[in-house]
Nucleic acid binder design. Structure first.
Length: 800
RNA sequence: GCGGAAGUGGCGGAACGGCAGACGCGCUAGCCUCAGGAGCUAGUUGGAGCAAUCCAGUGGGGGUUCAAAUCCCCCCUUCCGCACCA
């Protein structure tokens, strides 16, 4: 149901914009590769291709029954070679640019299933399928160098004015930029003495101003130099065992929660390049190998983690920054103070203030050749290798002579071979297909082996929006000219679950394709709407919870229009909603009410040749016209500017209520059919006013309830369908009220309401307010201090 | 721990410095009906009053303002994201 909501929102926007005269591209594609289909194959033996195509057929039928106006002629499915060929094409472009590369990296490995698991398949540190504790394995994996674009991706966020702030913030945090410095700590040889040139540990810090308080160095267990220290130690095996234990412990504990800070002394020391003193080097389980340099300078006085570590192992603590007037003593410290302030105990820098001192110290480090300013990102390169079948083959082969060889463009696509048995065991299923694996090297003609990993399915979804511009192109992913016409995407909606990965990857791909010369913009999605989830009994609908509301059932029971209308009416799109059948009844009733009302008038006011509304209206007609135009204004703004589709619907409901009242006042029925040529003008005017209101209503209703609206439109005698209709034009002159009700506040409380001509002069209004009977009872015997007229208008009187 | 969002009738929600509760659901009464899980009309925040009207009221407490659901500060609750990022 959540997806259905998303599609309806998009359809309302698309239909509305079409009526507004825009050329709208509203396409649909199937993100068809991925684990669910493969897991089903492992369980049931049905081939992923079969189940995927079945699913597509079923869902397509559902979307069509919902009346979502997709450009089906541009439909695409990522599992088809016509599409994934260009995943491979883009991969090759990335490879050429050094943006796709291979390195060893750790993965989650289930020893029982003999396979690699994605992070989300690891539940509480164990395999989701068999419950076996997950191990870490080092495998050669392909990566996309997204970190190359980290700065651009961060800066680009500032231009995304029509994105929810929340998503921008999440991306900003995810990218995680830190400004700091890389500092070299020379390593003292095992037996003591002067450090050898070039033998040093590099650390990254954002707080170089605290470096005089750096009393030890901490290494990640994975840090390369730890091996060497072990070899050079008295008992290499003992040290290696401790490291191995840390690495294993670390993993399990990370997945379940917090881990205790632990570490051990390597027995070695390094020189703090600022103080010149030798400080101990320890290994600590909380230092991350993947971030920075995998080594840190520990400043226990000013970093809470280092503080806890120092206290636990009785390592020295030294204060280097003072924030208040009084110097704190090391003995009295109960926690680290990470605030910026005045640098103390810091040699020549003592007395200088952050942030200036940070600049000075970095400059000095650079001049002395012991470090440099550096920017670090939390963002890591994107590992795209999956040891799975149902995905895009990575277009690379391995030749004994030529090494890693990209598949030539003219040999694309590298087709996914048909694998018939799925066990879920062993390495990549593709490795079990010799006809696939064994091939010839395009460079030397000798034997070569194909890469058997497939791509992460996020690759598929990182550029599909561009493919819609030119979905049948066989030569390139899309024609740049066509992309330039349609792109970037003006309106993009989806769940918040895509806030980081999908949207970040798409932004990355867009920039890569820009650098390749295929697109001429940086940001793929101009306006983003993150729609809320649809809940049932307070929980996300899911098969395992058994709380799924099947859209098919609702379509069966109510039809598409009430379902569409209800889903739009129940809450603003970005809010999550609790599913409620009773509300759907209400939407159904509303549509019946509209039908009945239009049906009632259709014969009288239908057909061609109804004149435009004239000026000599009865008060009732005048009111209806005003309501009509006020509704046009509100509905237009609600859909186009605010995307508050729920209030757009409620405005339409108000107009319908008004029409019922109007009909009531028109002698309980329709005036007799009046021929435009010989009719009485008052009747003609009534007809014209009704026609204006009902035409506008039907057109504005059509994005929400297209089937009903189309039928009504035809019944009203419009020869052309709604696709040729125009969104009604707002006339400010008509919408303007003749009279307005002005509240009068006395000391902040509304004590009276005056009905006055619109546009009344402030002085006259003040006069009227002060002479009003109800107002007088509240101000007699008191002193009027102030009378002001606020926009609205509204009168505010202050008395004492 | 850090960051973010949100707390409004019995319910979904409107209003986002200017008439709190639009619109809908539910409920109540009346009309129409053989009947109604149909339709129409009216009512529906709490308290006082026959009534006009008055008092209180947007999680709690303070503040800014002629005027606060709306802006600012503190607190409570719920949800979400990140979680040793040096």
């Amino acid at each position: 149901m959540g997806h259905v909501r998303n599609y309806i929102i998009g359809d309302v926007m698309a239909r509305m914009k079409r009526l507004r005269g825009f050329n709208v591209l509203h396409p649909f594609g199937w993100d068809a590769f991925g684990l669910p289909a493969e897991n089903a194959a492992i369980k049931s033996g049905i081939h992923p291709e079969t189940s995927t195509l079945d699913n597509i057929a079923h869902m397509k039928g559902q979307l069509q029954r919902l009346g979502i106006s997709y450009a089906w002629e541009r439909e695409l499915a990522t599992c088809l070679p016509e599409y994934y060929k260009f995943n491979q094409w883009i991969f090759l472009k990335m490879f050429e640019r050094g943006l796709a590369y291979r390195r060893r990296s750790s993965v989650n490995w289930c020893p029982s299933c003999q396979t690699v698991l994605a992070n989300e398949q690891v539940v509480d540190g164990a395999c989701w399928r068999c419950g076996t504790p997950v191990e870490t394995r080092e495998l050669e994996q392909w990566f996309f160098r997204i970190t190359e674009y980290a700065d651009q991706l961060l800066k680009g966020l500032d231009t995304l004015e029509a994105w929810p702030e929340k998503v921008v913030l999440m991306q900003r945090n995810w990218i995680g930029r830190s400004e700091g410095a890389r500092i070299t700590f020379p390593v003292v040889p095992a037996g003591g003495g002067t450090p050898a040139a070039g033998d040093a540990i590099e650390i990254f810090t954002t707080r170089i101003d605290t470096i005089y308080g750096a009393t030890f160095v901490l290494l990640a267990p994975e840090h390369a130099i730890v091996h060497r220290f072990a070899n050079e130690s008295a008992d290499p095996k003992a040290m290696r065992d401790r490291v191995a234990r840390f690495r294993a412990l670390d993993r399990g504990a990370r997945l379940t929660g917090a881990i205790d800070k632990e570490g051990f002394d390597t027995g070695r020391t390094a020189i703090n390049p600022f103080t010149g003193e030798a400080v101990p080097i320890w290994v600590a389980n909380f230092v991350l190998a993947e971030y920075g340099t995998g080594a840190i300078m520990a400043v226990p006085a000013h970093d809470q983690r280092d503080f806890e570590f120092a206290r636990k192992y009785q390592l020295p603590i030294r204060i280097a920054v003072q924030t208040g007037d009084e110097a704190a003593s090391v003995e009295s410290l109960t926690e680290a103070s990470s605030a910026y302030g005045r640098v103390v105990n810091s040699g020549p820098y003592t007395g200088q203030e952050a942030p200036a001192v940070i600049k000075t110290m970095i400059a000095d480090a650079e001049r002395r050749g012991v470090g440099a300013g550096e920017i670090q990102y939390r963002l890591k390169d994107w590992g795209i290798s999956r040891q799975r079948y149902w995905g895009t083959p990575i277009p690379v082969l391995y030749c004994d002579k030529d090494g890693v060889v990209p598949v030539p463009y003219e040999q694309l696509p590298v087709r996914l071979p048909t694998v018939t048995t799925f066990t879920g065991r062993g390495d990549s299923p593709l490795a079990q297909v010799p006809e696939f694996v064994n091939t010839t090297c395009p460079t030397c003609g000798g034997p070569a082996r194909r890469e058997t990993d497939t791509m992460d399915t996020f690759v598929d979804s990182s550029w599909y929006y561009l493919r819609f511009c030119d979905p049948t192109n066989t030569e390139q992913p899309f024609d740049p000219a066509k992309a330039a016409y349609w792109m970037p995407v003006d309106f993009y909606s989806g769940g918040v679950e895509h806030a980081i990965l999908h949207l970040l990857y798409s932004r990355f791909f867009t920039r890569v394709l820009r650098d390749v010369g295929l697109v001429n913009f940086d940001e793929p999605f101009t306006r983003l709407l993150t729609q809320g989830m649809v809940l049932k009994d307070g929980h996300v609908m899911s098969k395992s919870k058994g709380n799924v509301v099947d859209p098919d059932d609702m379509l069966e029971k109510y039809g598409a229009d009430p379902l569409r209308l209800y889903v739009m009416f129940v809450a603003p799109p970005e809010k999550e909603v609790e599913w409620n059948d009773a509300g759907l009844d209400g939407s159904f009733r509303f549509l019946v009410r509209v039908w009945r009302m239009v049906d009632h008038w259709a014969e009288t006011i239908g057909g061609e040749g109804i004149p435009a509304c004239g000026d000599d209206c009865t008060p009732a007609e005048r009111d209806l016209r005003r309501k009509t135009h006020e509704t046009i204004r509100r509905v237009t703004a609600d859909i186009e500017d605010r995307m508050h589709l729920n209030t757009a619907v409620s405005s339409l409901m108000e107009l319908v209520n008004e029409l019922y009242k109007f009909s009531e006042g028109t002698a309980h029925g329709a005036p007799a059919r009046v021929e435009p040529s010989g009719g009485r003008t008052d009747r003609l005017q009534t007809i014209a006013v009704l026609r204006e209101a009902i035409d506008a209503l039907v057109v504005m209703l059509s994005p929400f309830a297209p089937h009903t609206a189309e039928e009504l439109w035809a019944n009203l005698g419009h020869a052309d369908g709604l696709s040729n209709a125009e969104w009604p034009a707002f006339d400010a002159e008509v919408a303007k009220a003749d009279e307005v009700v002005v509240p009068v506040q006395i000391n902040g409380k509304v004590r009276a309401r005056l009905t006055v001509p619109a546009g009344i002069a402030d002085d006259d209004l003040r006069e009227l307010a002060l002479s009003d009977a109800a107002v007088r009872t509240h101000i007699t015997g008191k002193t009027v201090r102030k009378v002001m007229i606020a926009k609205g208008p509204l009168v505010s009187i202050v008395v004492q």
